[in-house]
Design a protein around this nucleic acid. Structure first.
Lengths: 179, 179
DNA sequence: TTGATTGCAAAGCATTTGCATGCTA
DNA sequence: TAGCATGCAAATGCTTTGCAATCAA
């Protein structure tokens, strides 16, 4: 209870100072303008540690200001990406998700095709081998994305339990395709 | 010249025997029907060693039979994927590409964000590390896709040459996004 | 005041679906 | 003959764009 209040209050005031500064700096450098909508969208985005689609974020923002339009959310997420605060992620269902980028380590994703759970992981060895690979082809890498699709531990357990019978539905959250 | 003729004649007759058998088998097992369209689409697909979008393939097929519709190409590519002959690939521009899958080693892609060139590569070490990573998270992997975006050797060279001046346009083929 | 920003509606794209007609098994 | 396949047009889902009104600098 107390923790929640602090979190909410904090986020409305001195939390995410650094990110907000970066955003303002980017806006000014680009000759753009600070607006209430952009502030709110950034605020809600930073407050939510998750993979958010533009629509997800739109609904969260709606709750605090019903006058903000979808378009503005789309446009602001692009802006946040340019500013280095957000990173686009394709999880495989056709839409674009965004995750925090500033002050967050680079990482890759494992995506459960049963329940949609997304596991973040990082492997310095894999990164290293990728760079070696690129060098071998005289290729100068700028970004990369590694996605592993499969079944998470939880869903494997469920599968085992249901292996006898029952018409239970899978807990589908993200509809992923094979690639 | 002779080589080309042989290639063309071959492809119309005894070439790709194995793939065609697999296709027929899949069709029969699934209670589906063999049609002229499906035959032609498979033929053209097999003949083209490249990453093809549904539309790319549609135009190639059009040249040989203008009566084939886009929809059928879409549907047949799905079929080929199910049969294990094709593999869906997302290169990052929003559309779905297909590549040969049967008798082709698994591989990953480096994509040049300047010219769209796609380099295929394979690293057993990376694969191995991925499996280790998955195991660590009790995750049962089924597929994965690794994309490295960057600048290919050719485009690096061009960049160097143009580094002084000139308003030359990049040779954009595939419009890729960051992730 | 000026030009960036917003939100709505409309447009774009790639892909999928409904359905009457055509064809395979 | 039954019912899968086809191709057109229309629908879908996500995202972008045009534009008049609004607002920050």
């Amino acid at each position: 209870m107390v923790k929640e209040m602090v979190a909410v209050m904090g986020s409305k005031t001195e939390e995410f100072k650094e990110e907000k500064e970066i955003f303002l700096e980017h806006i000014q450098k680009s000759g753009l303008r600070r607006t209430a909508q952009r502030d709110l969208i950034l605020e809600v985005f930073l407050r939510t540690e998750d993979h958010l689609s533009s629509e997800d974020l739109y609904w969260l923002v709606q709750k605090e200001d019903p006058n903000v339009g979808q378009t503005t959310v789309y446009r602001t997420l692009k802006l946040l990406t340019e500013a280095g605060l957000a990173r686009e992620v394709r999880l495989g269902d056709g839409r674009t998700y965004y995750e925090h980028h500033f002050d967050h380590e680079h990482h890759d994703h494992m995506i459960c095709t049963e329940c949609g759970e997304v596991i973040e992981f990082f492997s310095a060895e894999i990164e290293e081998l990728q760079d070696q690979m690129a060098e071998k082809f005289n290729f100068k890498p700028t970004h990369h994305s590694l996605r592993i699709l499969g079944i998470c531990g939880e869903c494997q357990k469920l599968e085992r339990e249901q292996s006898v019978a029952s018409g239970a539905q899978p807990r589908v959250r993200v509809k992923t395709t094979l690639n």
